[in-house]
Nucleic acid binder design. Structure first.
Length: 598
RNA sequence: GCCCCGGUAGCUCAGCUGGACAGAGCGGCUGACUUCUAAUCAGCGGGCCGCAGGUUCGAGUCCUGCCCGGGGCGCCA
């Protein structure tokens, strides 16, 4: 019964007005917005209001509806057992929504229904042998946004990640580095750390066919480290820290952060002890060749190997350690593990193993939130074969394209400010684009779509951002001018009513996005609000107060999605930047002609 | 073979946990203006909602079966 009702300001205002008008206690009136084709915008259930024994019959409902309709702020009320459907007058709805949104401002859409619950959002677990790619971007954006949604509804949220800086994948990169690296470092080559390390991993796989002994060498490196080769372990750490520093730089760039994190090298001993104990109890088994596994056949999860024949750890070994350690540090937190859907079975297996190993809480307090992968037009991304779209590359491309467009339109040096706007806008586009897909959808990367598409690309982002800015500008320039709703024609009144109802729906939408674990709901909602707002504005200039509500809603949504607004849109590159670039040249023909009609 | 996720306009995707005429953006077609191998604006056309049953007054939405696509079932991560 914790499902958030998601009441908007209109529902609350209507409930109060009804209570007064009908002379009934406000707690008994539960006003809710009705579905699209209902006989009224809102409805409330009559049953709690009737004396016990009395039924909400057709006649009773009609009687109550007539009473409701008598209120001067009601346009229409219809009784449909067991409810009364009502439609408030447009001007009344307008002030209820507009004032209500303004009253709540920064808290609009938030709620306390989950207050007191603690949760760790675990997102992204990059390997320190390659650079972040598009898939990592998706998980980061998803994780940040889910954390924001949880936070908005009262959860006490911590963000966490794990870094895999130990294991065969690292040794493979080191093997190639030892052979061809010649002592190079990120500093000596001027490369970003993760890209530096990634090249050796890529080289390992590229050369493996010609130099098969690499495989043996990598395995030996891992065994030596397991045997306690301090020098090698130290190098392993230095090598992976180069990579991790590069990953952190990208985090900074995309605004991702974590409250705490685990490095495999630190947590692994926990898993090793755990496995030793489990072996003694018979919770896991050792094969004749020495490898250790857990038999989950009874759960249709197969046999999961947790130690290699040579005793070295696998990915599940790391996961076990992290789950146990995190539970030790934050024993009262639930865990929301955000990851790609290829991990669905893996996470289930992990949780099952934890339970069998006696870590009941760690195994039962985790919820997996899975999303579809990001593909390339030619198919799956494959890190080993170098078929990837790097995170930095995507961001660079969009930024540079923006700068190029700018340079073409206004020859001359590109200043810091323009670079900054290009960078931020490029990031906003990638976030908007990736988060706009339903969580389970597979995404095919297409830079052209991001750049050109009016629904999910740059144009859509600019529309949204402009909407937010328009709100501020309108308020600043004409705080008192108002087009009274009464002056609108019929089509405009319908559109205005729909806009107001959408603005009113934000709390509900946020609740839904949280329940469904899908920020896409917020993206679509925000987009819808912006379209409706500009449609209304085209029909008849939208009044500043309504614009202000639109601005509040859009900014709140952007915040939930972790999308940052560039400082001002007036300085965007064309075709979005209007004609302001040549602002010194006053003799130009009226630039206002290109401004969308208000 | 088993498990999971999808299948909605030419393409990429929405469709609020059953409700009237199924939407958007690209592309296409038409027109306007013009900074004329283009951009912008306005408008138009376009859909056996994979197939077949079932539940319901009513199904793109729920159930069953089938078909197709993707993912997982590694001593990879």
């Amino acid at each position: 019964m914790t499902a958030p009702r998601g009441l908007g300001p209109a529902e609350q205002a209507i409930a109060e007005a009804l209570a007064t008008h009908l002379a009934v206690p406000v707690e008994r009136i539960e006003v809710e917005s009705s579905s699209k084709n209902a006989p009224g915008d809102f409805r409330f259930d009559l049953r709690p209001l009737l004396p016990s024994g009395e039924q909400a019959t057709k006649d009773v409902c009609r009687e109550w509806a007539e009473k409701v309709a008598a209120a001067d702020w009601i346009e229409q009320a219809v009784g449909v057992p067991p409810r009364v459907y009502l439609t408030p007058r447009l001007d009344v709805l307008s002030s209820q929504v507009v004032d209500g949104v303004y009253d709540q401002r920064r808290t609009y859409g938030t709620g306390e229904e989950h207050a007191g619950k603690k949760i760790v959002v675990s997102y992204n677990s990059p390997n320190a042998n390659k650079a972040l790619h598009l898939g990592h971007l998706r998980v980061c954006f998803m994780g940040m946004s889910m954390a924001n949604l949880l936070d908005a509804r009262g959860y006490d949220v911590l963000r966490s990640e794990m870094l895999s800086n130990y294991g065969i994948h690292i040794c493979q990169a080191i093997a190639a580095y030892e052979r061809w690296g010649d002592g190079a470092t990120p500093e000596s080559t001027g490369m970003k750390g993760d890209h530096f390390v990634a090249q050796w991993y890529a080289m390992y796989h590229a050369k493996l066919a010609d130099v098969p002994e690499l495989e043996e060498h990598a395995a030996t490196l891992l065994q030596r480290m397991e045997a306690g080769d301090e020098k090698l372990r130290t190098f392993n750490e230095q090598f992976t820290e180069w990579s991790i520093q590069g990953i952190f730089e990208t985090y900074e760039r995309i605004g991702a952060y974590h409250d705490f994190r685990f490095r495999e090298l630190d947590t692994l001993p926990i898993a090793m002890r755990l496995i030793t104990q489990a072996l003694l109890r018979g919770d896991c088994l050792r094969r004749p060749d020495g490898s250790v596994y857990v038999d989950l056949d009874d759960k249709a999860l197969g046999q999961v190997t947790i130690l290699r024949r040579d005793g070295t750890p696998l990915v599940f070994t790391q996961l076990l350690a992290v789950w146990v350690r995190r539970e030790q540090l934050h024993p009262n937190h639930w865990v929301m593990h955000v990851t790609g859907d290829q991990w669905t079975a893996g996470v289930n297996a992990l949780l099952e193993i934890l339970k069998r190993f006696g870590c009941e809480r760690a195994g039962s307090m985790t919820e997996g939130v899975y999303f579809g992968m990001v593909k390339l037009p030619e198919g799956k991304m494959r890190s080993r074969e170098g078929i990837v779209v790097g995170a930095d590359m995507v961001l660079d491309r969009l930024r540079d394209r923006m700068i190029e467009t700018w340079a073409e339109a206004a020859p001359g040096p590109i200043d810091h400010f323009q670079r900054d706007v290009s960078e931020r806008l490029g990031l906003a586009v990638v976030k908007y684009w990736l988060l706009g897909f339903k969580r389970h959808a597979y995404i095919t990367y297409d830079e052209e779509v991001m750049w050109r598409d009016g629904r999910s690309g740059l144009a859509a982002v600019v529309r949204v951002l402009r909407c937010a800015e328009e709100a501020t500008d309108t308020i600043a320039s004409a705080p008192e001018s108002v087009t009274p709703p009464a002056a609108l024609n019929k089509a405009a009144r319908v559109a205005r009513r729909e806009l107001l109802l959408r603005l009113n729906a934000m709390p509900k939408i946020v609740g839904q996005a949280l329940e469904r674990r899908d920020p896409a709901d917020v993206v679509h909602y925000m987009d819808d609000v912006c379209r409706r707002a500009s449609q209304c504005d085209r029909q008849a200039a939208l009044d500043p107060a309504t614009w202000r509500s639109v601005g509040i809603v859009v900014r709140r949504c952007l915040a939930l999605l972790d999308i940052e607004l560039p400082p001002s849109l007036r300085y965007l590159p064309p075709p979005f930047g209007e004609a302001d670039l040549a602002d010194e040249d006053d003799s130009l023909p009226e630039p206002a002609a290109t401004v969308p009609a208000r």
